[in-house]
Design a binder for these strands. Sequence first.
DNA 1: CGGATCATTGAAGTCCCTCAAGTCCTGTGG
DNA 2: CCACAGGACTTGAGGGACTTCAATGATCCG
Lengths: 242, 242
Amino acid sequence: MATRCDSCPLRQAEIFEKMNGEDIQFTQRFKVGELSVDPGTPLLMEGSNSPQLFTALHGMGLRYKLLPNGRRQVVSLIFPGDFIGLQAGIMGEMGHSVEATTKMTLCVFDRSEIWSFFKERPERAFSLTWLAAVEEHFLGDTLATLGQRTAMQSIAWALSRVFVRGQALDMVHNGAMKFPYKQQDIADALGLSLVHTNKTLAALKAKQLAHWSDGTLRIPDLEALAEVGLLDNLEPATRPII
Amino acid sequence: MATRCDSCPLRQAEIFEKMNGEDIQFTQRFKVGELSVDPGTPLLMEGSNSPQLFTALHGMGLRYKLLPNGRRQVVSLIFPGDFIGLQAGIMGEMGHSVEATTKMTLCVFDRSEIWSFFKERPERAFSLTWLAAVEEHFLGDTLATLGQRTAMQSIAWALSRVFVRGQALDMVHNGAMKFPYKQQDIADALGLSLVHTNKTLAALKAKQLAHWSDGTLRIPDLEALAEVGLLDNLEPATRPII
DNA sequence: CGGATCATTGAAGTCCCTCAAGTCCTGTGG
DNA sequence: CCACAGGACTTGAGGGACTTCAATGATCCG
């Protein structure tokens, strides 16, 4: 039973830009179905031009790139509300692969219809561009992390950001949120080795700054952690939803 | 004397998406002037919301972020044809600063008019989104470089990409192109120290793979360099121009 | 009970960083 | 015309943050 856009649970969270009735109606028309996948399922492949685009409704995933030498770079984590496949929709080719980390349910859109956003519904086209700009902004921050932060700072930065995002999505209860990734995922996201990531996480735990185990992330003092991570802005950016 | 869009010299280069007469005319209407700046001039500041957006006509620049600890991450180099200020135009806030490296001339657009792209000229709005997607794609590649490539691979990758871009813009003559940056800029772009960048460049020169001095970059065998840099695609992506 | 996956810990090695000089070049002013 | 200062580039040396290698636990599952 597919979720209807006008009762989309995502829009509850306040980081998402308000949509008016017509926007919702238009988006509904664009939605061709709903997809449910198991953990580990590939959703899009780098270099491909999938006919389908998605919005994550439930569950989490990750975007990554594989290098010729076999190493993997995790580009970003996917949270509910993220739009997946914009590059394919616009440029006709994905720059990274996407896979589900947990069980996910996704709204499915038809790539060939993307032009109608621009043609018929400029507000929605603007939202699409907005999302691209948000992503670019975020990647810039991540770049600065890999380039200029130490391992300790990087991990503190990443966990802080995750937590801020989690708060904005009402995923934090009693100071804890589900964080269903592997240490290897975070290592690959930050350009660190698994071993060093593990030891740094242990150090953060010893300092009482972040506790992450069994897929649950607990941060007693977000400001303290953010300071270690040289993260100055704890406000989640508001963004549109497709 | 301002350049007219219908005789814009940039569109000569074939990496740029073809524009029809109406697109050109519309863009011309949007253009409010031309700006000429000296090397070192700041164009946009991180966190600001400039009323002006630019397209680089001549000259080169760079985008960068400053961290609380004073370190600098160069996010990308700016080449002719690049659009500057999209984030401010869409989100109302830049995620990085921009400054001119050489003397530059820029087309100036009015930020408040950006909505008219979407409202009146969906083709141009699509181009804008396309640019954002291209940038996101590129940042993903850069991320993989900082995270997964060695210093030698990183520099080989960066120089190869620069050269490919230079070729596409007809900036390469007799196997050489102007590359007016400092070693510190490249070090900050790749998350390396100046010293190590210098030594790695020397190593590449010794291997006859890349010669960069006095602001001129010479690459005798692009394929060989690209292979060292684990760069597989030597085709420049076609992109729109604003 | 094996086998698989993930997390943890120890030890050794290395790539890259920081520190510190020194060269080359350009511009400036006496 | 030369002394000097500043900026970019070079080069050497030593140290450290992080990697790789290797082994062990812990948990889950057919």
